[in-house]
Simulated assay, not measured.
Amino acid sequence: MDFDFLNPVNENLLDEISNLDKQSFGANIKIHTAEAGLPEMDNIQVAIIGVKENRRSVKRGELLNFDKLRSALYSLFPGNWHINIADLGDIEKGAEVEDTYFALQSLVAQLVKKDVIPVILGGSQDLIYAQYRAYDTLDQMVNLVNIDSKFDLGDADNPISNESFVGKIVINQPYNLFNYSCVGYQTYFNSQDEIELMERLFFDAYRLGEISSDIAQIEPVMRDANLVGIDLGALNAAAFGEGLHASPNGFDGKEICALARYSGISDKVSSFGIFEYDSRSGAAGNMLIAQVIWYFIEGVNYRTNENTLSAKKEFIRYQVPVDDDILVFFKSPVSGRWWIEIPYLANVDTKLKRHTLLPCSEEDYLEACNQVIPERWYKAKRKNEV
């Protein structure tokens, strides 16, 4: 792997680690240092990366520094985990923003191919574009989940920014995007044109209030994701403390940590990013982000590997006739989780080349028994037909 563009973790932090409890997070991960260089990546499952890029932010903050965030993370105690973690240091800003994109894209692609999950600590959220483009070489359709108060579709004809990167993902070749889900959007931050565009593209949008009243409904959405990004602007100001994120409404600390854990426990999520970090964030904000990372890793540790052919052979199959369709559901006898089959359409140039299982909930199955077609199944089927 070529990681020459990564800078080591600040030496001052290494002095802090030497004073930490021997069971702390910082004392039990491999760290890129100036003296020892990059850690060996054999048997690493999760790699932390900072990206000091925010030039495409509409509200650009100060120069980025992740030392306070790392200090908060290192001070935590890991759970009873059986995975190995590395902190690879930081990608500095390139001469041009596109240089930073290229470095992040190539790094994420290399890590994902090695079955290492990158946890990206970002500047501006347009970095998700580079995270997404890393999948160009992986020969697969991509499901993107964005935890955000805004859709970030923007005007695709204008230069990319942290509020328009999704539009660029939709229109730029190669076309790898199968589904985009925005979790926690707030209507007053999004134009009616964007809301209608989300509907026309059969993308999924979940309002903040809808999720806060039943956060478990997002578990199937995360289970179907390949990459997940969090805009810290999706948090409310009370949860985050000082910094650029001053909206009174948003996810609280427990909710964002639950969403991070759902992301981690998904067998399909192969990269995870936290964006719109501001170096002026106070102790509360840094500690919350550290705990979000902690919960993501906790989820990774408890993956059940049900996204395999051998596991699917053990699933219990249910057929439910609804109108002119026969919906086929599957239930795992191990985890109790549910899936619904999206049929393969041989007579169209489909994006899906075989029968595909879409994660769903038991409630979807029960509603189908009452002749109600699950909305996510309908949207996935329509996208398959386009």
Results as ranks from 00 to 15, higher is better:
G122P: 04
N54R: 10
A34M: 08
K59P: 03
D67Q: 13
R55A: 13
E96P: 08
N43M: 11
F77G: 10
V112M: 05
V97E: 11
Y101H: 13
A134P: 02
D152S: 05
K114F: 03
V58D: 08
L76N: 14
E35W: 02
K68V: 02
L88F: 00
R56S: 09
D136T: 00
G61M: 03
N65Q: 12
V112S: 05
G61S: 07
Q105G: 01
D155N: 14
Y101P: 01
V97L: 09
E98K: 15
A86K: 03
K59T: 10
A34R: 03
S161D: 06
F77E: 10
A36K: 00
F102Q: 13
A109N: 13
G79S: 06
D126E: 05
D139G: 08
R56C: 11
D42P: 06
E96R: 15
K150P: 08
K150Y: 07
P118V: 03
Q105P: 02
L69D: 03
Y132Q: 09
A109M: 11
S71V: 05
E40R: 01
Y101I: 03
G154F: 01
S106M: 05
V142G: 07
S124M: 06
K114P: 00
H32K: 01
Y132F: 15
I49L: 13
H82F: 08
V58Q: 14
Q125T: 14
I91H: 09
D155Q: 14
N65I: 10
K52V: 04
D126S: 05
Y101W: 07
S149V: 12
D42F: 08
Q140E: 13
T137P: 06
G122F: 05
E62A: 12
Q125D: 14
Y129K: 09
A134N: 07
L64G: 11
K68L: 09
G89P: 00
D42Y: 11
L69V: 02
N54T: 08
I147R: 03
I31F: 01
L64F: 01
